[in-house]
Amino acid sequence: MDTMRCAADTPAPLGAAKDGASESAMLKDKIKVLKKLYPHARSVLLPALYAAQQLYGWLSEDALEEVSRLTGVSPAEVKGVVTFYSLFKTRPLGRNVIYLCTNVACLIMGADTLEDFLHNTYSLSNGETTADGRFSLVIMECIGACDKAPAMLVNDDCHFNISMDNIREILDNYK
């Protein structure tokens, strides 16, 4: 088992007490800075969405409207963009998100049995969240770790060479 941990960027836990006004202000400032990276203001949309996602944990309709206001991109277009990409969270997900690759290289190495394992152990299917909110499962296309297949991301950590033997152990680290 190999793991590559990546510290930052973990979203704030859901439901934590938040001060709405100061968050909005933070987002506004962040987007203002990000806008400088592009020659046209609307191009900030993807980074702005990431910033909102990091702040709020997921992209609710309210968050999308806020991003729309701050970027000048119309709400409908923001929605069109968000739903095009598969890694924006348009629903609240569990505390830990398992991104399991099941593409060909991982499939050959048994990713489908891992999928079954998650289903049997946690009643998790693609896109679902466990009742206790601990895990969500997102089935992925290739995550570029085919030499260490099967592979998955949990939140921002990469896990390689997963097998029936070690998957439980890996997941036990995520509460």
Binding site: N103, V104, A105, E141, C142, G144, A145, C146, D147
Partner: peptide, 11 residues
């Protein structure tokens, strides 16, 4: 973007 399944060389 290295999205082509099986590809991990740019990584």
């Amino acid at each position: 973007d290295e999205g082509e399944p099986g590809t991990f060389k740019d990584r």
